[in-house]
């Protein structure tokens, strides 16, 4: 009886973590909603078959890479260009997985494989801030990760289906500008993080380089801008630290 009760307790705390993860992802779901719908409509109008559109959302599950693939198909690019672009655009996920690695390295591969497959910008933002919160000592945090991922995944797939259906019914929908939802979501994630000067420096450098290098092929400008942003952030943090040390030694007039 006691063992059974304990088992039930563990089950319910896992489920609670998963539901909490899904709940904390709700704002991201709202932001991804129009993004997924517009993907479905654009894919069909770019000439991709319905089954390939759904398969892409089910097996690739990477919003920005899927969008770029669609625009490449529409412009008649070859397979090699599409695959190389996918690689470059998704390289940022390696940075995400590097940052989450300390939290998941104790898990068996049967956990790491699905969590890796479902790793997106949105779940990364939600899960990373959960792991960073002090004072939460649950042994089931990976269930939170899973809950966030499943919410994003089912939402993305459902939105793709809706988009495909709407795309057939309302052919002009692709021009409505629903892609702005992604811009607003990413702004909502980034701006609250800009509390320190090094973070602000990272954002400004990334924005400037992204605009200057935007004409580079295969979205190379994105990777270059991200790299410059990270370098700017690290450099600013080091300068900040050394100037703080100087201030501590001398007067406070530079403050």
């Amino acid at each position: 009886m006691g063992g059974r009760y304990l088992e039930f307790q563990i089950m319910s705390s896992r489920l609670k973590e998963a539901l909490l993860g899904a709940r904390d992802t709700i704002p991201m779901l709202v932001g991804a909603l129009p993004f997924g719908i517009i993907f479905g409509t654009l894919a069909v109008s770019a000439g991709l078959s319905v089954s390939a559109t759904l398969a892409m959302s089910a097996f690739v599950f990477a919003g920005s890479a899927q969008f770029i693939a669609i625009s490449l198909i529409a412009s008649g690019s070859g397979l090699a260009v599409i695959l190389i672009t996918t690689l470059i655009v998704n390289l940022r996920h390696m940075l995400y997985s590097a940052s989450l690695l300390p939290y998941i390295r104790h898990l068996p591969q049967r956990w790491r494989i699905p969590l890796a497959f479902w790793l997106t910008d949105e779940s990364y933002a939600v899960v990373q801030s959960y792991y960073l919160q002090p004072g939460i000592s649950s042994p089931h945090k990976h269930w939170y990760f899973l809950g966030s991922c499943l919410a994003m995944y089912s939402n993305w797939f459902a939105c793709t289906v809706i988009g495909v259906v709407l795309g057939h019914a309302l052919p002009g929908m692709a021009d409505w500008g629903l892609d702005f939802a992604m811009v607003a979501t990413f702004i909502g994630i980034v701006v609250p993080l800009l509390r320190t000067r090094p973070m602000l420096a990272a954002a400004l450098a990334a924005a400037a380089v992204a605009l200057l290098a935007h004409s580079l092929p295969y979205k190379l400008g994105l990777m270059l801008a991200a790299l410059c942003g990270v370098i700017a952030g690290v450099t600013a943090e080091r300068l900040n630290r050394s100037s703080c040390n100087q201030i501590e030694e001398g007067t406070n007039e530079h403050l």
Binding site: Q128, M182, I187, V190, L193, M199, A210, G229, V230
Partner: peptide
């Protein structure tokens, strides 16, 4: 630590 801010800003600015 700077990855999310740098990557997401690099997507948003051109958009």
């Amino acid at each position: 630590n700077y990855v999310p801010v740098a990557v997401l800003t690099a997507i948003v600015a051109p958009a």
